[in-house]
Nucleic acid binder design. Structure first.
Lengths: 225, 225
DNA sequence: TAGATTGTTAATCGATTAACAATC
DNA sequence: TAGATTGTTAATCGATTAACAATC
């Protein structure tokens, strides 16, 4: 199946499978069937098998999937099989939450440097790191060689930061600022928009309450995944 | 078009349009065409018109869309036309970032209470609020009447928190914990998974770099949206 | 009116689901 | 071997795109 473009939803689910598998490994489980993956992930067994088929054959008919083997395969696919440095820009509240985020380690992601443009903050400690001047990001990343970066600055500064990151060799940006970034075609951006998420929930939450009050609650809605 | 289910991608884009419109209003722009919306949002004009068509007719042929009118319409659709209280569970680093998040106000979202289960934290100030005992969430929300809540606790505690929130009348949950929540069908969950986002970027970032090094850089990849 | 732009329909595209032969 | 479960193909479903008549 090499050559086919992998759908983005497939990649997103891969990360979910990986989490389920790591939990299973923690619990000492050796083997899981696609049906069992469905029970733990909420993603259908057929979808799981289809997703994996983009990358190869990983299971044994009649048996299922070896938990440690599949973990290794997915990690390799996602390039999480060796430590991946990540730049963080923005030493505010969100940056502090990220730099202390305990779950990165299990995925071999490591915040390797923190940047800000505030001269009061530059030079101060931040988690295990020291805040550096965003103006020096290219120079600093020449040593680190990170491809991934997180933007956690106010919206009005995000585009300028993105430009500097691209200049510094970053090819994947996780953007927390509520703004559309313009980047060259070889750079991927994923946006985390808390307001957008809440807006979607707001639409449903109130709709649902009304339906509920009318005794018209929907059935069989999918649980959160 | 009433009666048709609105696709989730449409709702997600609605929040993006709203942001573009608010920016335009800020800049004193009175009218925008779908083409201009495309330029600012990265979402195609056809898609924009199709999205709005689920809710009614909002534009004038030959003219475009009134910025203030459309803002009002989208706000009404998303139930952001009047203040919406939101419960926050988890008074850690992420909770601190959220409680101080400046952008909620423009969308009429307000964190109305913060909860934790740590007795050392309960009673302490947190932003403008005082941390309350999660065990009292039902009691507290009986007064607030929030339908939306944010879970910002470690993964191992998230399901228990979700159960309590549902019990307290919450119908929309924004979940930051890396775990699949099980909730009744009338409750909507949206997950923000930083690890998942970085995993997807990791896949692409390294792929792209390799392609780049080989002189096979992809063309026309979509810019971040 | 003539030009511009909408709202909607039909065509295209892509992702999900179901079913089953292959195989451990 | 018999039972279970995979990987894949074909059918279904849903979302996006393109085109255009309606209309300001």
């Amino acid at each position: 199946m090499t050559g086919t473009r992998v759908p983005t939803p497939t990649l997103e689910r891969l990360a979910i499978y990986l989490r389920v598998l790591l939990d299973a490994q923690e619990a000492g489980i050796q083997t899981l069937s696609s049906q069992e993956i469905e029970e733990h992930s909420g993603i259908s067994a057929a979808q799981f098998r289809k997703d994996l088929s983009y990358f190869g054959e990983f299971g044994k008919p009649g048996v299922g999937y070896s938990v440690p083997d599949l973990i290794q395969c997915i990690e390799r696919i996602l390039h999480l099989d060796e430590e991946q440095p990540v730049l963080l820009v923005g030493a505010g509240n969100l940056g502090a939450a990220l730099v202390n985020y305990p779950n990165f380690k299990a995925h071999r992601l490591r915040i390797a440097a923190v940047f800000d443009n505030n001269y009061v903050k530059i030079g101060r400690p931040f988690g295990d790191l020291v805040i550096e001047d965003i103006a020096r990001v290219k120079e600093v990343n020449a040593k680190i060689g990170a491809r991934l970066a997180i933007i956690a600055v106010p919206a009005h500064a995000a585009q300028e930061v993105a430009d500097m990151l691209v200049e510094a060799g970053i090819t994947g940006i996780l953007n927390f600022a509520p703004t559309v970034l313009r980047v060259p075609p070889h750079v991927h951006v994923r946006n985390v928009s808390i307001l957008q998420e809440l807006a979607v929930l707001s639409y449903h939450a109130v709709e649902q309450s009304v339906a509920y009050a009318d005794g018209q609650a929907t059935r069989g809605g999918k649980d959160g995944v």
